[in-house]
Design a protein around this nucleic acid. Structure first.
Lengths: 165, 165
DNA sequence: CACGTGTACTTGCTAAAAGCAAGTGCTGCA
DNA sequence: TGCAGCACTTGCTTTTAGCAAGTACACGTG
């Protein structure tokens, strides 16, 4: 898909070129809070992204340096995506978004305890999630999953670790 | 234009239903930081929004309670838009976005002093801008611009007050 | 070693939204 | 009375999204 050209150097516009659409931030949400990190995981999200749109967003996000693909070079089996530090730096934006929606959406599914903590000690909460994300990242780096069953336990942990939001 | 139905109660998705597109946040930026508040002002923004898209976004944002239209009831002369408190509450999101883009866009047009202050004392900066926005809002409320030239000076002030970003 | 399963896509088609130029209907003002 | 400005709307083309189906590759099982 063609790359849209930037129309200004305004920081808001720059950010919108990266995630100014209906789907990109949902993928980032899945990576950040839901422990989803594969193509089929993203498809499972309840909003129901189309396969072609998902494929497109994933290459864009990789081009933009927001996430990295850890693919088995042969192209086989499950490849995983993970946030880069640039992607992890979107966390404060996501938290502010969650806070805003929790305030204004009467039917919000945001976890109440999470939101309360977000209001009371946002810095601590952000730092905590951030370090979890960094852990997950370097953990994945440590086991480059060349072998099939190797470190399967750590992979399970990674998959199931989910932040309540 | 038809209203898209919500596909989940996830707070991220809720927010994206309000501003998950390429243009909505630019309008909010104009209202928040650039002192633009009329239809033609928004058209003047360098990104160049199309007239039909702008009209559509303005009614959506009004429906969503993010902004209010202060229109001369007759439909004549210039009508102005202003952020509601729900709209003003988007400020922290905008500031985080600006911070992120300033960090990752080498050609960013974000004001360096503004960004430095954003990093050093984000809470104070947010509070300051927020109170400016609230002032502007109640000021506009005080002079419901029924008469032509009445309170023209305050209108000029409102128009020219622009936050550097 | 054929066969089914799972993963990660691509392709083809339709529907919706964006982009663009032009036009409309007000209203103040000269 | 006529012109200019504002806030749109309309009509048309292009782009993007949505959806169902199909493809390619590897692994595991019988």
């Amino acid at each position: 898909m063609k790359r849209r050209h930037r129309k200004s150097d305004c920081p808001v516009h720059f950010a919108l070129e990266v995630f100014g659409d209906a789907w990109t931030l949902l993928i980032i949400r899945d990576l950040m809070f839901k422990g989803r990190n594969s193509y089929t995981d993203f498809l499972r999200a309840e909003e129901g992204i189309a396969t072609n749109v998902l494929a497109d967003r994933l290459v864009r996000l990789e081009e933009d340096g927001v996430l990295e693909k850890e693919g088995p070079p042969g192209g086989a089996s499950t490849s995983r995506y993970r946030l880069t530090s640039k992607g992890i730096d979107l966390l404060p934006i996501m938290l502010e978004i969650i806070g805003w929606s929790a305030k204004y959406d009467p039917k919000t599914a945001a976890d109440r305890g999470f939101v309360r903590r977000l209001r009371r000690e946002p810095t601590e909460l952000a730092a905590e999630i951030r370090s979890q994300l960094i852990d997950r990242r370097s953990e994945a780096e440590a086991s480059p999953r060349r072998a099939k069953g190797a470190r399967a336990s750590s992979r399970r942990k990674t998959k199931e670790r989910e932040v309540s939001s």
